[in-house]
Design a protein around this nucleic acid. Sequence first.
RNA 1: GGGCUCAUAGUCUAGUGGCUAUGACGUCUCCCUUACACGGAGGAGGUCACCGGUUCGAAUCCGGUUGGGCCCACCA
Length: 842
Amino acid sequence: MELPLNYSEHEAEIKWLKYWEENNVYKFNPDTKKEIYTIDTPPPTVSGKMHIGHAFSFSQQDFVARYKRMAGFELFYPFGTDDNGLATERLIEKLKNVKSKKMDRDEFVKLCLKTLEEIRPDFIFDWKKLGMSCDFDIFYSTIDAHSQRISQESFLKLYNSGRIYRKKSPIIFCPHCKTAIAQVEMEDVEKQSTLNYIKAKAESGEYLIYSTTRPELHPACVGISIDENGDYVTAKRENNELWIISKDAYNTMKEEFPMEIINEYKGKELLGKKVEIAYSLRNFVEINHDISVKTEYGTGIVYYCSYGGLDCVEWLSRHKTIEPLHIMDESGVYTKGKYKDLPSDKAREEVLKDLEADGYLIKKQKMKHFVNVHERCQTDIEYVATEQWFIKYLELKEQFLEAGNKLNWYPNHMKNRYDNWVKGLQWDWCISRQRHFGVPIPVWYDKHGNIVVPKADELPIEPLKNVPKGYSMNDLTPEKDVLDTWATSSLTPTLAADLFKNHPVYKKLYPMNLRPQAHDIITFWLFNTLVKSQLHDKINPWKDVMISGWALDPHGKKMSKSKGNVIEPQEVIKKYSADALRFWAAGSKLGEDLPYQEKDLATGKKMVTKLWNASKLAITNLEDYKGQKPKHLLPIDAWILSKLNNLIKSSTESFEKYEYSKTKQEVEKFFFSTLCDNYLEIIKERLYNPDIHGVDAKVSAQYTLHTSFFSVLKLMAPIMPFITEEIYHLHFIKTEGLKSIHHSEWPKFNAELINEEAEKIGDMAVDIISIVRKFKSTNKISLKEEISTLILAVNEEDEKLLKKAIADIKGVTRAKEIIFDDKDDDSFTRCENFDVKVGIIK
RNA sequence: GGGCUCAUAGUCUAGUGGCUAUGACGUCUCCCUUACACGGAGGAGGUCACCGGUUCGAAUCCGGUUGGGCCCACCA
């Protein structure tokens, strides 16, 4: 056969993509008799292009998928897209130049679905080019009717079982985006702020001094707290005003505000005092104790509002008798009090002006502090009390921790993050969003305000357009809110499995075997999915979770568009091939982050080239080999087969633990060093000269070459699916007749081929060859140059062993003569690992 | 502040108690050899972050320090 000189990775990769698709190589067969291995593939968001982090973690999960397929499983490996979120909404608005808020919701969803149909193929093609072996026909979009039905069904079931409730409750709210946001959508930003010291007159005549960064909330002040065990003082100012502050505050303030202590006491003494707060809707608030108050901060006296922040919310939950004051609505505007109709930033300016004019403000202290902002728009978040839908789960922490214990975590330590998160949960799960685009909450309200839900067989349903059977549009007011995107994406195992709902295979698809994902979303995607399956079925959604790390920039920093250090995987594939990109992704241990280093891609490309070139040698020399077993296996052949079987054993064990990087590393080393550098060089002599060494010696080499090369190809196939497929089709397909190497059986460990004596012979030979190479290198002569005599000073036992491989050693070292001699002198070199000394005569 | 995690040649990385610490890239020297010059052979390059402990023996185990990363909490 005429073999092409070079391997053109781009042509080849496109060729095999088409081939795999046309031949349904990765098609799931629901009627299979094989055991099924199910993967809960993460659905990426069609909000742009695949990024390098995707390429990194999806490659890693694909290694496992391909390994499992070769290990004999039928793969249920779906591919969905998460189209149900703000990101998609923004993308569609941009692409179609529309404003979702100005459109009918149903219409906008339809436009999204239509637009997604247009752009999705290109988007998904990036994943195909990466060599993902999903069955792309097992597809769902988290906004399609199928997903909407399942998501609404989940809502309905949980509602009917009393798990879901609606409550006026403070939620984290973005006044700019005008929606409730999740904890995870916030980020910390350090901002310049002012700590304002303000005085308030107590009923008994003294002034309490407190400090706040949120003065605009004065109208909503509902209480004032101190530390009952802390030290406080009453101090007299020059103008005879009496100030109550903590002793710590007295010490720091006395220079700026000269005063004289007239009384010292514990905070306990202040409890129950009534205080008049400026502009508050409550005339008087009462002093009480709260655990969060520290005497050394500010003045040791804190005012609480509904709601200045999480601390106020928590404070209210500790002081249950105090009624919150709701003064802000969902548009971020004050609805009551002196600053009605102002947004909070304007209100702050006005309040400060008034406080100053009315003599309440005594000090402004510049400070830097962290405020929570919405990550998308960087707007300060607010806490607003609105009607929201919640899934009640706080009392189930123990059950969730228990469920986490039952999962197999790879790597194990990632479970800590999950445990930490569950233990720290303080809120029920808020699942409603005031967005326009999303899965509608299937709820209506009748004229008395009662909640009306549909029957399961009416789903999916759009409440803005339809009503449940037996009602008319006039009877009911629809719920306008939609479900949070996580309420739907927490159902991915069901979204995928339900596509086979009417097939007997259905019951084998859930729970799934594996959830692969990155470590940043353990606390929400992983946790939320587990919550849903626990609530619905009291089981875990999967057996194993495999947690990937992140791709970082070359300096180990996180990639981000704003830093301009983003690497585009499409460009990488163009320059180095998908196999090379995957080879790079295989270089990181599971769960570890990996800096992107261009040189690693060059290494991957080198691996492709080497496989190609070595296969040319192998295939050319296997042309006349008919698969016969050799009469006698030569020691060098037994040597590499023994090494190969050790490799198969450890590679398999590594893959079973999802440690693909170990497999990659071992196979790479075996291939380059053992197979190419040494074995191939050794057997050339036998392959080229059967007239000298005999046909049996050639057949022994051919059998061994075929076995070891083919095995390496299979071991490498999960990581580099393209080049291995190319080589398979050039030759090795003949022995199996399968349509793809990816249908081949993963190499099996054969204990009979483990041969300690042969390993010793081979290892000694390699050491001797290495000494000869070094000799030639230092003497600046070509490796093909002949040497006249090779003298081996060894003990009797090793001499016997070495004599068994003497022809091979002679051939590869190009020694005209090899003699054994027990005498050695200073010119001899000792082998690295054996008590063998080597002398060379040019 | 709490939890987790990491620290190994110029760079990235392997290595969970044992001969001389792994590999790649880079670097230097040599070699155009019938798979490969998109290559091959060989060399140089390391206080395994720091301090202390356990041990016959520590990159590895324990305690502490320093510095990175991630997650969580706090910031009136």
